[in-house]
């Protein structure tokens, strides 16, 4: 069994199984920087929320996979990821941690821990399950 680093909602079933280095994007500037670097296709993008609306340009420019730390598959970002057919795992939590996202009462440390643990790791997204999307270590 491959090493599953994190799990969350699978936004849509797909056999696409993109792999790349996780890149945490904290702001619009990070997205602009990534697009300008020409290396968008090498990264699985990690963002904080389903409400992170600054990701749209990255999706339209060909992002290969997305992980969010909050938000539901019915959110704006979920709808966009299905439109662009970009595999997306939402409200991911670390399999090695007990910390979970709770709407409205999630400590900052929850997000920091996920960003710290996943940023820079080489991973593959497994989005074949109906419910659960998995972030697998490579």
């Amino acid at each position: 069994m491959a090493d599953v680093l994190a799990e969350g909602y699978n936004v849509f079933d797909t056999k696409k199984s993109p792999s790349g280095t996780v890149k945490y994007l904290a702001s619009p500037a990070d997205v602009i920087g990534l697009i300008q670097s020409g290396k968008l296709g090498e990264h699985i993008l990690l963002v904080r929320g389903g409400t992170t609306t600054f990701l749209a340009p990255a999706l339209s420019m060909g992002a290969i996979g997305v992980i969010t730390m909050s938000g539901a598959p019915e959110s704006h970002l979920g709808i966009l990821s299905r439109e662009f057919q970009t595999p997306c795992v939402m409200t991911a939590h670390l399999t090695g941690s007990d910390s979970r996202y709770v709407v409205g009462s999630t400590d900052e440390s929850h997000f920091e821990e996920i960003a710290r643990e996943l940023d820079g790791k080489k991973v593959r997204l497994d989005c074949t399950d109906d419910e659960v999307g998995r972030v697998v270590a490579l």
Partner: peptide, 10 residues
């Protein structure tokens, strides 16, 4: 609306 959009897609 969000639910309806998702129902359109899936």
């Amino acid at each position: 609306l969000l639910t309806t959009m998702s129902a359109w897609q899936q």
